[in-house]
Design a protein around this nucleic acid. Structure first.
Length: 271
DNA sequence: AAGTGGACCTGCTAGC
DNA sequence: TGCTAGCAGGTCCACT
């Protein structure tokens, strides 16, 4: 589910409400991708600080250290003053005086990991090597072009890798490449400087529009209030195999790259 | 070093 | 109706 827009929409939906709340209990369900890395009792009585985002990770600052959260493929967070009994896919509850933050994640590719700081311990290891933030001033066509130098892998795989720029997953990489008119199979080092400018712009535009519309709810994404996203209605290529391109009428094609589906318009997107 | 493929885990859907 | 194969928003790791 969650690419940068969904993670950011989630963050915005509970960050201010949870800020300053005192933790009164922690419930851990089935194992997630990585161990929590701390005795849950150590979190009790601490106050929650700022909730920030790096790529598709959230950092929940506590008084001593913090929690790094990832939603994996199927995770979502809910924050409510009252939550029901945990279901089979509710794997982490952070109970505070103001409400409970609950991670639901059927596939359990997500994670909640304690770390002494975002740039130390377990968090540092997970965040190391992440590419630049797409809304950061450091991300532009020049950066993209330089980072792609000598890279023979496809531009789509380069974006998904997250080592150049973070945030665009399978949906938004497909959408941004469509907006930029670039065939997703184009070798990274064959994308011209000019097209890198267009692509950087398209990535920023696509992601910011997705944040505005609440992210994409393909199946089950919800923000921490339980609100679904609307961006999937604006997708031009993702999930539209066999349908006519909204821009040129050519049939949208589905190909497989790196074991993931890629959707593109052969009429609008060129190598 | 870069690139590729497998692994993790569960639920849903299309097709027979 | 019931079973099965295939597919799904991520990303780490081992191997070539």
């Amino acid at each position: 589910m969650p690419e940068l827009p969904e993670v950011e929409v989630t963050r915005r939906s509970f960050a201010e409400r949870i800020r300053g709340a005192e933790i009164t209990g922690v419930r851990v369900g089935k194992p997630l991708r990585w161990p929590l890395g701390v005795d849950p009792e150590q979190l009790v009585a601490q106050r929650v600080g700022a909730v920030t985002r790096r790529g598709k990770y959230l950092w929940l600052a506590l008084e001593r250290g913090g929690l790094l959260l990832h939603l994996g493929m199927s995770g979502s967070l809910a924050f409510a003053s009252r939550v029901g009994a945990p279901g089979p896919h509710d794997h982490f509850d952070l109970v505070t005086r103001r409400g409970t933050l609950r991670l639901t994640d059927p596939r359990r590719f997500g994670a909640v990991v304690w770390s002494p700081a975002p740039d130390a311990g377990a968090a540092a290891k997970l965040l190391a090597g992440l590419g630049v933030e797409p809304f950061d001033a450091a991300f532009d066509g020049a950066h993209l072009h330089a980072a792609l130098r000598g890279r023979r892998l496809s531009i789509k795989d380069a974006l998904l890798g997250g080592r150049i720029v973070v945030g665009a997953g399978n949906i938004y990489a497909c959408e941004a490449l469509f907006e930029a008119g670039i065939d997703p199979r184009t070798r990274g080092d064959r994308v011209s400087r000019t097209r890198c400018e267009a692509l950087a712009k398209a990535i920023r535009q696509t992601l910011s529009r997705a944040v505005e519309t609440g992210g994409s709810t393909l199946r089950d994404f919800r923000d921490a209030h339980g609100m679904a996203g609307e961006f999937q209605r604006e997708a031009r290529v993702y999930g539209r195999e066999g349908l006519p391109c909204v821009r040129c009428g050519t049939t949208i094609r589905r190909v497989v790259q790196g074991q993931r589906a890629t959707y593109h318009c052969p009429g609008c997107q060129k190598r």
